[in-house]
Design a binder for these strands. Sequence first.
DNA 1: AATTGGTTTAACCATTTGGTCAAATTTAAG
DNA 2: CTTAAATTTGACCAAATGGTTAAACCAATT
Lengths: 207, 207
Amino acid sequence: MVNQQKDTEQKIMDAAKEVFQQKGMTGARMQEIADKAGINKALLHYYYRTKEKLFEKVFNIAFSIFIPRMQEIMLSEKPVFEKIEFFIESYMDLLTKHPYIPGFVINELNRNPQILVNIFEKNIHIKESNLFEKFDAQIQAEVQKGIVKPIDTRNLMTNVIGLIVFPIVARPIIQGIMFDNDKKQYDAFLKQRKDFVKEFIINSIKA
Amino acid sequence: MVNQQKDTEQKIMDAAKEVFQQKGMTGARMQEIADKAGINKALLHYYYRTKEKLFEKVFNIAFSIFIPRMQEIMLSEKPVFEKIEFFIESYMDLLTKHPYIPGFVINELNRNPQILVNIFEKNIHIKESNLFEKFDAQIQAEVQKGIVKPIDTRNLMTNVIGLIVFPIVARPIIQGIMFDNDKKQYDAFLKQRKDFVKEFIINSIKA
DNA sequence: AATTGGTTTAACCATTTGGTCAAATTTAAG
DNA sequence: CTTAAATTTGACCAAATGGTTAAACCAATT
């Protein structure tokens, strides 16, 4: 059955995602992935020859999840404030659905910064479109028009992304220290934070 | 010689720090730590019986580096704005000296959130002094006095810490995407960012 | 029914890895 | 100098781990 193949491959990917994102490349075990996918370990190597290759695929998919939305928002014709608000809203939702990915990406990128280069080589369009420079141009234009305070775009973007991502990757610490390790309370905190961050950012840059 | 012991133990700790912080608990190899310390692998186990125990010690030390300064600043008698500015200044400096620690801590805490509980058990004073509630009280007092905008302390602290830590833990990504992987440029960015973050935060909360 | 091609498995292998042990060496004390 | 205790080492071990292989299985084609 040609469908069985697709199915097995998908089961492997699902299992690999789970294990890799939770334990990292070095902590993951091929046997555990095989078990979780309900197959034999040899079958894993039949589909993805090495652990490295399997990991690379999982990493690429994880990383890719965050790219298209960014492009869509950044390249749209909205004014800066709207873009930022939409960006925050959109990515905080996305992270709620994929909370393990940022930590996973950050961690593995620290282990091996070279991966980024590989990704760029395989997805040239990401760098090609040069999102950053276009957004920077728009901001400086609105600064000229007196809508936005003079600001360095790199600092601003670091702030926006940081405020979104940090509470997710540092969840165990923040939840443990500031929320008595109460999961529900922290979920509520994250939900409530969406509007807070929007206001926080907009307030700080509006002229 | 009683001093040789101290020396060996220190050499082990230095080596262990380096390897664990760069490769994580699962990625680290006892052999590599021994090599880096210039000793036999068996000697490693003589001083720290298991990998787990050695790791725990390294983790505790790493985590502890960030606690005393926080207590000192938070419990001082300064007004909120000064505390925040001093906090940012102080921790950005500290992170420049120990850039690997935050990623290390975040990563290992995701792998095993239980570690935090153990640390609290061994360093009860951290929780006991209840920094958070005292700082919260001070802020609400200054809100009453009309110095600070009404604000949720947890959100504020998450922002402050996030803006400080994020550019460090996500360095490979940000540097790669926004700075053409130019190390010197990114170091300059971090240096310049200190005042930027201070202004950014203060601006957003002053009444 | 026989053949063919992809899929799946059980058994196996080589290497790595955390950990142990008995012997050797060094250090401090009597 | 002798002795006893602490320190250090080389050799070794059992388990875990990524990976391989040959055979079995299964669906579709002739």
